[in-house]
Amino acid sequence: MLDIASRNGNAAAELRRMMRRAAHAVMATTAYDHKQVGDGWPVTSMVVPAAHIDGSPILLISDLADHTRHLQNDPRLSLLFTDGNIDPGRIDTDNARLTIFGRAAVADHVPETRQRYLQAHPDATQYADFADFGFYHVMVEAVYWVGGFGKQRRLKGDQFIIDGCQSLIAGHDDVIEHMNIDHADAIADIVEHFTDQDKNDGWKMVAIDCDGMDLECNSADSRPLRIEFIETIRSPGDARDILVEMCKKARAQMA
């Protein structure tokens, strides 16, 4: 279960991590020209979001889906994320869940939005360019977390989303290239110290965001690896500083 008292005391960061871990979400939209219910009826569907560098959700959805038509008429939505797998055979009030309230904006012509989604979901490249599919960026207005009976937290959108990280978005690819070309040894040492994976598997950084980094390796038995940062970053300079700090901790332990 999510520990709302995070390592760095940042509740919003822990909620963003919960969202990033989720394999899918339930989305609620307002019906428009629906074949079964009248306009204004609440309708839910399952979607596979990704999280942008600042923590805002990204969607790739088809114009053929009811929920896309609903959003084109009324961009308001809510997304429900759960922490871990819920057993449908029993009721467990201790299952953590996170609801994000926001508005969907078309983002087909925003390259970093597309890039971020496809980094998180590489299989989506098979249909991302179909004429009926489009990318949407969710502008978060409010967040509601329930961690079990009597445990809840409410945040405004600007408390959940990281501001001032445009330089990290713009410099994302340069950070990745620099780390993989010049500091592969540092990545390996960080993997060894902060995870239980083999540092010699040829790990490479594939993405970085305000809360952590995503790695992959050449081993057929390994899955993509997520390493969380101990504090929030906003710029390439912040990324350099936190990676240097993590590398120093890893090498101090090995000394």
Results as ranks from 00 to 15, higher is better:
Trp41Arg: 01
Phe130Pro: 08
Ile61Pro: 01
Ala51Lys: 00
Leu243Ser: 14
Glu216Cys: 00
Gly134Arg: 04
Thr68Met: 03
Glu141Arg: 11
His109Asn: 14
Ser6Thr: 14
Thr99Pro: 01
Asn200Val: 00
Leu79Tyr: 05
Ala184Ile: 09
Gly171Tyr: 04
Gln253Ser: 07
Tyr32Leu: 08
Gln36Glu: 15
Ile61Lys: 08
Met19Gly: 01
Ala31Val: 11
Asp189Gly: 06
Pro122Gly: 00
Lys249Glu: 08
Ala107Asp: 12
Val140Cys: 11
Ile162Gly: 03
Arg97Ala: 10
Val206Tyr: 02
Trp41Cys: 13
Gly147Tyr: 03
Met205Asn: 13
Asn218Phe: 14
Gln166Ser: 09
Asp201Ser: 04
Val43Trp: 14
His193Asp: 12
Ile58Phe: 02
Gly134Asp: 02
Asp163Pro: 07
Pro224Phe: 01
Phe81Ser: 09
Gly148Ile: 06
Met213Tyr: 09
Gln253Tyr: 10
Gln152Pro: 02
Leu80Ser: 06
Gly148His: 01
Thr82Leu: 05
Val244Trp: 08
Asn218Ser: 13
Asp209Leu: 02
Leu15Ile: 09
Ile208Trp: 10
Asp3Ala: 11
Gln159Ala: 13
Tyr144Ala: 13
Leu243Gln: 12
Ala50Gln: 08
Arg103Thr: 13
Asp221Lys: 11
Leu60Phe: 10
Ile100Tyr: 09
Gln152Gly: 15
Met205Ser: 08
Ile161Cys: 08
Phe101Cys: 02
Gln126Phe: 03
Lys35Glu: 12
Phe135Asn: 07
Asp54Glu: 12
Ile230Ser: 15
Met19Ala: 15
Phe81Glu: 11
Arg153Glu: 12
Gln159Ser: 11
Met18Thr: 09
Ile190His: 06
Ile53Lys: 02
Asp94Gly: 04
Ser78His: 04
Ile91Asp: 03
Asp158Ile: 01
Ile162Tyr: 12
Ile61Gly: 07
Ala107Thr: 07
Leu60Asn: 09
Leu59Ile: 01
Ile208Asp: 07
Phe194Ser: 11
Pro57Ser: 12
Gly9Thr: 00
Pro88His: 13
Met205Leu: 15
Ile162Met: 13
Gln115Phe: 03
Ile208Asn: 10
Gly102Pro: 05
Ile169His: 03
Val146Glu: 10
Ala5Glu: 13
Pro42Ala: 14
Asp108Val: 06
Ala186Arg: 04
Asp214Trp: 00
Ala252Ile: 04
His183Ser: 07
Asp74Thr: 10
Ile162Gln: 05
Arg90Phe: 09
Met205Thr: 04
Ala188Pro: 05
Asp94His: 10
Gln36Lys: 09
Met19Tyr: 02
Tyr144Asp: 06
